[in-house]
Nucleic acid binder design. Sequence first.
DNA 1: CATGAATGAGGGTTCATTCAT
DNA 2: GATGAATGAACCCTCATTCAT
Lengths: 194, 194, 194, 194
Amino acid sequence: MNLRKQKVAKKRKEMFRSAAKVVTNKGYDRATMEDIAAELLMTKGALYYYFDNKEDLIFQCHDLILSEALNEIEEIASMDLSPELKLEKAIKTHIDYAINEKEMFNMILVPEHTFVDDHLKLILEKRKRYTSVFDRIIEEGINKEDFKTSDSKMIRMIILGAMNWIQTWYSPRGGRSAEEIAETYSDLLLKLLS
Amino acid sequence: MNLRKQKVAKKRKEMFRSAAKVVTNKGYDRATMEDIAAELLMTKGALYYYFDNKEDLIFQCHDLILSEALNEIEEIASMDLSPELKLEKAIKTHIDYAINEKEMFNMILVPEHTFVDDHLKLILEKRKRYTSVFDRIIEEGINKEDFKTSDSKMIRMIILGAMNWIQTWYSPRGGRSAEEIAETYSDLLLKLLS
Amino acid sequence: MNLRKQKVAKKRKEMFRSAAKVVTNKGYDRATMEDIAAELLMTKGALYYYFDNKEDLIFQCHDLILSEALNEIEEIASMDLSPELKLEKAIKTHIDYAINEKEMFNMILVPEHTFVDDHLKLILEKRKRYTSVFDRIIEEGINKEDFKTSDSKMIRMIILGAMNWIQTWYSPRGGRSAEEIAETYSDLLLKLLS
Amino acid sequence: MNLRKQKVAKKRKEMFRSAAKVVTNKGYDRATMEDIAAELLMTKGALYYYFDNKEDLIFQCHDLILSEALNEIEEIASMDLSPELKLEKAIKTHIDYAINEKEMFNMILVPEHTFVDDHLKLILEKRKRYTSVFDRIIEEGINKEDFKTSDSKMIRMIILGAMNWIQTWYSPRGGRSAEEIAETYSDLLLKLLS
DNA sequence: CATGAATGAGGGTTCATTCAT
DNA sequence: GATGAATGAACCCTCATTCAT
């Protein structure tokens, strides 16, 4: 049934969100399957119908958000825009995730403390693909002489570091909206390339 | 005995280092007291001779490195230098910690996942003092019209975020020395203020 | 399910009995959760499905037997009987518990060695209610001039002390049945009031 | 050295008293060697110079008080007095211990929760000797037809139970002095034999 | 599909005991 | 004689996981 599959897919997304919420609040190890189930008004046992085990649940969760973000960022990279505009768009998209998907985003920041072996490897590869998109955009700008820098990796790491830090201090009740922050950051960070 | 006290103090530092190492590698929750003890060629029980419990051990560890860094950074802020030079020095010092005290540094990045209640409060207060030193230097530069920016907090957060991210990618076997990185970062980050 | 609840209630009673047995034999501190679980042919972990922790298990156990005995004794006090007959009945009931619920009874004798704070307070309050029933009966007898004594509290404490000591020496293989003992005790103890 | 031995003996008595104090307050299992040492302003290790181990310490403590009480009670039994006066004296002596050596006394009430095997056997034998002194006095009274009862054991157990219960409620800040209590108890308990 | 119940492995912590100094 | 330090066994408790119903 297509309808059924859609329903299941929707349910899984709900589960991801709840899982992310709990994991972000408590950390992976302190978040129990019971906590996650309770957030979903389910019993612990029911989760095992949908997922093999805790790591599997969180891994899929992790993978989903990463894949989504990767898609968006790759789409931006392939647009017919100037490197500067691409980078601006990429920065704003990243910050949008950092703020508006705070829970998911927060959860994936340090995968080394959650996963080992294969899962970790898969996650790290996808992250590498993600960061390499930024590298490509920056190098494109360097080639076109839009950007002036001798060290694209360093710049990329500054940019990502600065953005990933946002979720440690951002609060919706703070004085700045997500858009303002994205605007300010992209303005400032692009300065690094001029 | 003063000699005895010195010995104990030295031993405690060793313990801090080992604890930080294990916690950084595995995360607070996965690092067992046994792991930490093994790293020190001790038994688990011996740790409890020196510390009340796991949280106490890690908290003291946490507090030590934070206090040290705070002292250094405050000393820089009180020097008789131009804001630009102060900021440069502060950035280089911070990066020096991030790289050369990687284990300690890494451990303290997200205290929310380790501590709760009083310990967390104490840590967060000290962190606030740390970040406010950066704010002061930046504002000093703005007042002297050495720096051009309308939003010192934002700049500070970009700077700290960029620096704190270093430990996620730095490796001593990478192509760049700690000094090079510090140099590059301070050059680039100061651009944000020009 | 009402049926399920009944089952659970029954199981809990079983657990109380086993817990009391082990605690009486070994004392609270030496009785391990594993001991109690083994007595029930369960694993340790299963106990934690029903009770929050060891103290909780023993407290509930404690509270149950105390409440039951209190109910019986209060019922006797409210009967339409002479104080003498009431006291006789109360004594016999108490001794019946002391002997036939030896394990439960024994466990609750010195709550100070088991509980602290709130739990202890609750237990002590209920015990006070229990002893005050005896006081009421005795005072009723004094008022009706059935009993001759100037110090009802002292009498009550002698009576309770004498009865509570039974479980230190009673053995089902001894020469006296529970009924004989109860008979003898009530005869003798009532002498104190004549 | 006789002087030295005396000193040591005195020290040991001090230790017994401290140990009894701690054990009475916390119970045998909750009283740690450290607690006892702290009470004596010693370190834990030093206790092991005087005693083989915890059980040994408490056993000796136990044995001392029991032997003392036994001596006193046996002396009374061998006096040239009427059984009635002997029993009165014995009761008063026992109550004096119960109240004025509350800590020691309390500790020895339920040896089954402290000792096992040989130590327990020794204690129980000495207790048997103690109770048999009461039996002897009562039987003497029966033979001389001073006392009227058919069941001396039962009487003895009532008497001892009543007296041993005193320490659960006695407080120096209560309204009755030790002497008053002893007086009242001996009056009342002797009634059981008339 | 979902639940209640149970398991078992593992971690934090305590503490009697030992021992070099 | 005494101390600081260390050990190791045992205990309470948690929780991912399983499974009968």
